[in-house]
């Protein structure tokens, strides 16, 4: 009886681990920690640069950053710089008032590409306003929180254990 339960539990656990390892959420541990300016910030003066900082260090290769105004014109200067966990880009001086979107793509030191964006406003927003949140790009990794996946996985695991327990009982009885 006990051995049967342990066997079912082991099978379910191994299965759950395999799903977790192969699933798209496996590399979600490279997380954006902060941006400068912060998402949605309204600035009174034009920033000299933008940056995005992550929870682990980045490769100095493969990084890219671009800042677009509401008409999708690039307002950055020079190349993006990667230092430790931060990618940064200098901006043209005295940006006119409006909404800007900074986009980044980095490869974390442990080999995961991350792509995303944030917006900020200099003075007052552009009209019409550019979209506040960026669509996640296919090439990059979505910056969505991992907890819904974890809850789902836990629920599935519990369900599977319960079913397994029930099956073992039925067979034994």
């Amino acid at each position: 009886m006990r051995r049967g339960f342990a066997r079912v539990l082991a099978v379910v656990l191994v299965g759950a681990l395999a799903v977790a390892a192969g699933g798209p959420s496996a590399s979600a541990h490279t997380q954006l920690v902060a941006t400068s300016p912060s998402e949605g910030a309204v600035l009174t003066t034009s920033p000299a640069s933008v940056s995005a900082t992550f929870n682990e260090s980045l490769l100095t290769t493969g990084g890219a950053m671009v800042v677009l105004d509401a008409e999708r014109r690039s307002v950055g200067t020079g190349d993006a710089r990667v230092q430790r966990a931060t990618i940064a880009l200098d901006l043209q001086p005295s940006l006119p008032d409006g909404t800007y979107r900074a986009a980044y793509r980095v490869i974390s030191a442990d080999g995961h590409p991350v792509e995303g964006s944030f917006t900020f406003i200099v003075g007052s927003p552009s009209k019409p306003e550019v979209q506040g949140t960026a669509p996640a790009n296919a090439a990059g990794e979505q910056q969505s929180p991992a907890w819904p996946a974890i809850v789902l996985l836990a629920a599935a695991l519990l369900g599977a254990v319960a079913v397994g327990w029930w099956v073992v009982r039925r067979v034994r009885e």
């Binding site: 493969g62 890219a64 671009v66 677009l68 979107r101 980044y104 960026a134 090439a139």
Partner: peptide
């Protein structure tokens, strides 16, 4: 080519 976010589809490096 650039993507929706304005990033180069083929990285510069």
């Amino acid at each position: 080519a650039t993507n929706d976010l304005g990033l180069p589809v083929i990285p510069t490096d």
